[in-house]
Design a protein around this nucleic acid. Sequence first.
DNA 1: CTGCGGCCTTGACCCGAGGTCAAGGTCAAC
DNA 2: GTTGACCTTGACCTCGGGTCAAGGCCGCAG
Lengths: 258, 258
Amino acid sequence: MTDGLTIGQAAAFVGVTIKTVRHYHRLGLVAEPERDGSGYRRYRSDELYRLVQVRTLAAAGVPLAEVGDLLDADPTTFAATLDDVHDQLTERIEDLTARRDRLHRLDHGDRALLPDRACAVLERLVELGFGPDYVAAQREALVLALALVPAIFDSFLARLEHSLDDPESVELTKRGWDARTWDPDDPRIEELASTLADKLLTQRALLAMPTGFEDQSDAASRYAMVNHHREDRSPSIARLNTLVEANLRAAGVTVPSQ
Amino acid sequence: MTDGLTIGQAAAFVGVTIKTVRHYHRLGLVAEPERDGSGYRRYRSDELYRLVQVRTLAAAGVPLAEVGDLLDADPTTFAATLDDVHDQLTERIEDLTARRDRLHRLDHGDRALLPDRACAVLERLVELGFGPDYVAAQREALVLALALVPAIFDSFLARLEHSLDDPESVELTKRGWDARTWDPDDPRIEELASTLADKLLTQRALLAMPTGFEDQSDAASRYAMVNHHREDRSPSIARLNTLVEANLRAAGVTVPSQ
DNA sequence: CTGCGGCCTTGACCCGAGGTCAAGGTCAAC
DNA sequence: GTTGACCTTGACCTCGGGTCAAGGCCGCAG
């Protein structure tokens, strides 16, 4: 015949922490019990019962904000609310599962941020004798393209694959990469730009924008951002790109700028 | 040849909000870009690239606190960390799924906080003519028992089921419930207590504590808390219980007290 | 009678990943 | 010159509690 349990005992009995019990009091989910002469809370079975109800619902994933209404609701509302919570939990589970799957796909070394097909292209670059710096630059460009212009990522990749099948293109690309160390005023840059533009014009079909992409309002800026990535690290490359674009425009090709 | 994107453009390009970009800056995940004359941040492709990296990992469920180290780590560490994150995500998914399943079991009207077998017993009470108040009191007692003394919940339930099979027990129980409206000094209470105790003693086997339960240090208090639930609402019932317990003790049965 | 350890009280701040609000500066267009 | 869209910083909010701090209450030991 005691006058009730202390908060520590009550918490232990229903399997929560003291802090949690006080939290429920503050949220109004469990009424404050009587206090004894020292100001200690003293719990009777009524409060214990309520505590068990709250803990059971909370453990089942019902947000505390809804537990109070739920326990005071009629059975129909009760069931409907539980259905809601059930659906929300399902949604969160599916979201987390999707994240985990994405993570799983990222989980194998180099294919960190890119799909398999893009990784294969990067490996071909290594086999073809491109240096690690060039491969790294291409990787960055591909990551950027995938994120900024996913709609044309595949055609971007196709153009790259196609040019790697052509030894002449490979040679020109290597020479273009070498240009990064040249002086920006080196006359070889203009010559190289002209050759590169001619080469590109032989594959005119590949230069066309995929349908459905042009009408995206900022498509051009996004595309330009990918094309000019890392350009600021080498003024010679920047000049080379500018000249190639000018040549292409002169030949009637639409090249996004700005 | 612009001097970079504003924060709103950069955020839109990589598919996050402005707030998120600034959040990444504050966490040191993406370096602050140069500012223009007005103090606006101006993003170049370098920062965009980094932003894409961070967003990709974050979207895959990597905690932001680990993203920074991850992007600066060697491939081995990279893979190991991703594995860790993968496992943590799996754990959270399993936890949420367990909650959802618990919720699903709670989701059917009356079987809110109790297993099916207990709900069946409550329905039998209704069929046997017990009033809603009595049924509600029994439900509370069962919920409390399930939470406080799960180890003996089954035997608790078995005792209840067994007594419902015996019409004489049912009659006595109804009479005990009627006692709640009597005066606490009514002499019929003593008489009823004696009859009830006799009845209980004919089922002595059911009174024994299940093995493995006695040695739990606070088992007795927990058990008493269930037994005396709601007693404070009727002094007559309290007196009846006390007398029954005294009778049982006199007959050599160990009854938890305090 | 005093100290010690263990329980209780309140209050304030912390986590993650940003969202929201407020007050003010900047820019381009009308 | 004014409007509306954008930018800046800063402070406070989420959810379910955990952790820390300063102090009161209790029983037991010397």
